[in-house]
Design a protein around this nucleic acid. Structure first.
Lengths: 333, 333
DNA sequence: TCGCATTTTGTTAGCGCTAACATAATGTAA
DNA sequence: TTACATTATGTTAGCGCTAACAAAATGCGA
């Protein structure tokens, strides 16, 4: 910076002013400084700036360390939005979904003096760690947590999972299904819990029993296992439709049903959740609930940088029902 | 740090020594300092450290801004490996795959004084930008670039795409196929180019013509479009097998063939590339080439931090053929 | 016990930037 | 023109850490 100042014939502080768009710099001086900067290929040292200002203009993203479609898309959107706002992004993922893993990951971010944190890890162990740590920087969590106490400094942004599950369930009910099973996501995950609640509410409203089949994980093998268990009951006429807590589970289910000789949607209807890229290309095309992950990512960053503007209310984004070919009226016995 | 020093009754420099595992610190002193650190909940300011040492212990990851399975998995693995080595990770993605977009993204990383960069964006525009910029920090690119000049400071780590394509092609040839078409990936991408070469080599070695059908993108809709075009030729007996440049394309293809009333693998065989999580659950289960993305990520980081150890030769990792149910001998007319 | 090598601890300066204040230049009303 | 407000620029100090050197404490052989 001193070199630039020398070339432009000004003090280093004036260079700093130009760099920070300070108003009180004469146009001629600004131009000379800018030219010197270009000539020397100067780039300011951000570590020094961070030290002097106690601000890094960096946000941290904490994410789960797995290849799930939703979180990944959200992270990408957060990063793009942050960059557009002139922020840098540092990312870390968790080795395990327990309290300690979450604390370690959070510390890893705060060690870097991030100006804010976006957490894309909708697991209750993670939120517990956040509550416990009482971070000094703003935190936005992408998780459908509905029991947030009023005035909680941590903000939540999410897709209305409960509503999505309700839509999915009502779609099946409106087709005439009554014997429906929900293959629910693994415990600890807010999305699983909320979808479960939405499902129960819709079933209760229609006066039906809400039968669940808990999946071991979010992945296709678990859906497949569920399908293997459920197929005989479908054949016995005890089940006419399945609402799976995500598309991976739905696809596993579809595969298991196919292997059991069941036709979807003729013998049994299946609904998923997420709308994976390939949902539309599966055989049959999968009826599912689309989550606008990119919107969530953008909203989370806006919330983070927006500061104390307005209310503390969680930002909730609506999912969309996408009806394709894996659902139809139940068989007539 | 001064506070810690006061509590422990030492100078701040001794605290610094403890923090940096300097050998010449008496055990008793070290313990006292450690206790003071714990008592005060002290965490060192990394911006100051970076300023003093001119090292950030941060590596930058440049990635494409899309939800592709491979790059995403690789990024996750790089992050985990970096964290295990005590490095921080800052990430940025590109808005566009042109030269300018790559330069902007690279500058975004170097502005943060990263100690090294891992590029997970196997596109020729990106490598062109890297060559042009002559970065002062070590760079490792995850891309199957084979024309790297000897002594190039940029190192390349990748899966042997050419070999994978050869395996896929030979698998089809060994089943008896001769009329094979390769649905190739979009231009500019190293993976597409290399798979194309591997395919041609294998076909040439078997004395067959190598017929290609270029896809517009890496995504399922492009595979579907290819399938729509190819289906009549399959029916006419002009094609008995298709090697798609990735699994998304293969799935689009499968869907299009299914809609055209063609059975896979009875009427036509299909091979993909990548081994997506759901490849095993598609109907039929997809025969494909598995890429060990996590291994690549780890290898890239090792290469980056390993420094000038050993040769400059690109690190090449072998893919594995996974034979499932989408391939079979050609129909007997 | 002394003298010297070795280990341990302390002191000073500076990394490159910005905040706060000081000074100089300019504009404007009387 | 002068006096004073306003704008533009310069000077100084310090952010929290580590490198380099200085000084003190310790160990050890004679």
């Amino acid at each position: 910076m001193a070199d630039v100042a020398a070339v432009a014939g000004v003090s280093h502080q004036t260079v700093s002013r130009v760099l920070n768009d300070h108003p009180n710099v004469r146009e001629g001086t600004r131009v000379r400084v800018l030219e010197a900067i270009k000539e020397l290929g100067y780039r300011r040292n951000l570590a020094a700036r961070a030290l002097a200002t106690a601000q890094t203009r960096t946000i941290g993203i904490l994410t789960i360390g797995s290849e799930f479609f939703g979180p990944q898309s959200t992270v990408l959107a957060v990063e793009a939005a942050a960059r557009a706002q002139g922020y840098f992004v540092t990312m870390t993922s968790m080795d395990s979904y327990d309290f300690g893993g979450a604390v370690t990951a959070l510390n890893h971010l705060t060690d870097q003096s991030v100006d804010g944190v976006v957490v894309v890890a909708p697991h209750d162990k993670v939120t517990a760690a956040i509550d416990d740590l009482k971070l000094k920087v703003p935190v936005v969590v992408v998780a459908a947590r509905t029991d947030v106490p009023a005035g909680d400094p941590v903000h939540y942004v999410y897709v209305d999972q409960r509503d999505g599950a309700r839509q999915a369930t009502e779609h099946l009910l409106s087709l005439g299904h009554r014997k429906i099973v929900h293959v629910s996501g693994p415990s600890g995950w807010f999305d699983a819990t909320e979808r479960n609640i939405g499902w129960r509410e819709a079933m209760a409203a229609a006066g039906n029993d809400a039968v669940e089949f808990p999946a071991e994980s979010w992945l296709a093998p678990s859906g497949y296992a569920a399908g293997v268990s459920l197929a005989p009951r479908v054949k016995a006429g005890e089940i006419t439709a399945v609402f799976a807590s995500n598309d991976y589970l739905a696809i596993g289910l579809l595969r298991a049903f196919w292997e059991a000789g069941l036709s979807v949607p003729e013998d049994v209807s299946v609904v998923g959740f997420d709308d994976l890229q390939i949902a539309e290309f599966y055989i049959p095309k999968l009826t599912t609930v689309r989550q606008p992950f990119a919107d969530v990512g953008r909203a989370a960053l806006t919330e983070l940088l927006g500061g104390e503007r307005g209310l503390q209310e969680p930002r909730m984004i609506a999912p969309t029902m996408v009806v394709r070919a894996s659902t139809a009226p139940p068989p007539r016995n």
